[in-house]
């Protein structure tokens, strides 16, 4: 069955990309289904930008291939590129040109012209809420407004697949919410398939139907945010202790049946207690501490989230 027939819009198969001796993308295979919002998470240097560039048709991989629908994607494959809208991480605009002039230029690059171009320019300005500033030079816009114009330039030719590379970096909360609303509306109302890379877990949790975690050039986890979080189990109890009692506390708590593991916390005065159900294990933990006359200074229950998932699979925080 072909990709198009089984509802897959973007498919990367065995993609490898090397820069000299460095393997930036290492045998990545993934599929983005038509109509979904697909998140790509990874720390800096994980190979995320290289993979996004290959999936945008900017350059060819060292090995493997990418298809959009039934068309193979390459720097020279114009038909496949026309189906993709790319919103790069940089504010890829001409500061000296007005918002409308920028959009007219990028619209022409994608083959729009005449009345159709004028209509699309006005439509995307309306979508990103910049109609009233369209004639101002892009260089005079705030950072958030520039991000919105950057997004608008990727929407002009009504792509089936929109690739958003860190679209909210350095954006004020108002513009950030505006971008979230745009992404949700594009996906929900117009059926646009979206690939979304971000450093922010709450964005991925809010927007993405599925997320892939990439580290050292490989996909280390791929599923819906809920499934990934549930795969972690019950969560973590973080307790504050007297540092002199650390060894005694660790020994006492490790013996509890409801506790899976006891490890160091963020500082020497705390411990992280992993449990299948943090809330149920909390009772056992407190009873054990009282029985051993050990002092508990603070207690926090850390509910699992994508950040925890990321930490589990990569050993690092997403912002490392």
């Amino acid at each position: 069955m072909s990709s198009a027939e089984n509802g897959v819009l973007l498919r990367a198969g065995g993609v490898v990309h090397r820069y000299g001796d460095l393997t930036a993308v290492n045998d990545v295979t993934l599929e983005v289904r038509r109509g979904e919002v697909f998140g790509l998470l990874g720390p800096n240097g994980a190979g995320k930008s290289t993979l996004i560039s290959i999936c945008s048709g900017m350059f060819e991989p060292t090995a493997g291939q990418v298809t959009v629908g039934d068309r193979q994607l390459a720097p020279t494959s114009r038909a496949a590129k026309r189906r993709i809208g790319v919103v790069p991480q940089d504010i890829a605009l001409y500061e000296k040109l007005s918002g409308r002039q920028n959009l007219r230029f990028f619209g022409r690059v994608y083959g729009l012209g005449g009345r159709r171009l004028r209509e699309r320019v006005e439509a995307v300005l309306e979508v990103v809420g910049l109609s009233d500033r369209g004639n101002d030079q892009a260089g005079t816009y705030s950072g958030g407004m520039q991000r919105r114009l950057n997004l608008a330039a990727g929407l002009l030719h009504e792509p089936e697949l929109l690739i958003l590379d860190e679209p909210t970096v350095g954006v004020d909360p108002q513009s950030r919410n505006h971008i979230f609303d745009n992404v949700e509306r594009l996906n929900r109302d117009q059926g646009v398939t979206i690939v979304y890379t971000t450093h922010y877990m709450e964005e991925a949790e809010r927007l993405c139907d599925r997320v892939a975690i990439i580290d050292h050039g490989k996909i280390v986890a791929l599923d819906s945010p809920r499934a990934l979080i549930e795969s972690l189990g019950g969560g973590v109890i973080q307790i504050g202790i007297d540092p002199t009692q650390r060894a005694q506390v660790t020994e006492s708590l490790s013996a509890l049946a409801s506790v899976q593991a006891v490890g160091p916390g963020p500082d020497e005065k705390s411990l992280n207690i992993e449990a299948s159900s943090a809330r149920h294990a909390l009772v056992d933990v407190m009873q054990a501490m009282n029985a051993a006359a050990l002092e508990v200074e603070t207690v926090r229950i850390l509910e699992p989230n994508l950040e925890s998932v990321f930490l589990r699979y990569t050993g690092r925080s997403l912002r490392d």
Partner: peptide, 17 residues
């Protein structure tokens, strides 16, 4: 300057040679 702005990179993804 155009390379620095990232606009050239965006054009690379566009259907133009």
């Amino acid at each position: 300057r155009e390379r620095r702005s990232g606009a050239m990179r965006r054009l690379r993804a566009a259907p133009v040679g």
